[in-house]
Amino acid sequence: MEQKGNDKGWNPYVAGFLTGLLLIASVWFTGKYVGASTTFVRSTGFIEKVFEAERVGSMEYFKKEVPKIDWQFLFVIGIFIGSLIASTTSKTFRLQGVPDMWQERFGPGKAKRAIVAFIGGAVAIFGARLADGCPSGHGLSGSLQLAVSGYVSLICFFVGGIVVARILYKGGEGR
């Protein structure tokens, strides 16, 4: 596979090491372990509350994950800001609606990408909530604590992903 230059990125081991230190600092100073997928549940709860506040108030899952702005909500917003800062200051910010690899395989059509990405998002969050975590909550936080749930979930994330990626890109370039 082509490496497309080094693209001025950091060595992934260095970036990963610094992220590890960040995760330790977060646990040390605030007792917080990172996660992301619950925020989508809370956001949906907020939106649904606009239309049917009573019903949302009575739903079991929204009682468990009450729609509110919490640490994780701001954490997820922070990811957007941090990436925006890193990309604009290194001139790697690029407006792009169809990823390169996708385009090579499925063409430049934006509608096709939009439909698949939307469905993918809906399926992914459903799975993440059923598993009780995503690659942040299970993958990072669960694994670093040696939680059995973290490793079982992480392995299943990759098994599901590898199988579908193989189907999507079967016969395409690469292997």
Binding site: F126, H138, V159
Partner: peptide, 12 residues
Amino acid sequence: GGLIFGIGWALL
């Protein structure tokens, strides 16, 4: 849930 997440992850 993990397998379902993986399917969605590869699509998205």
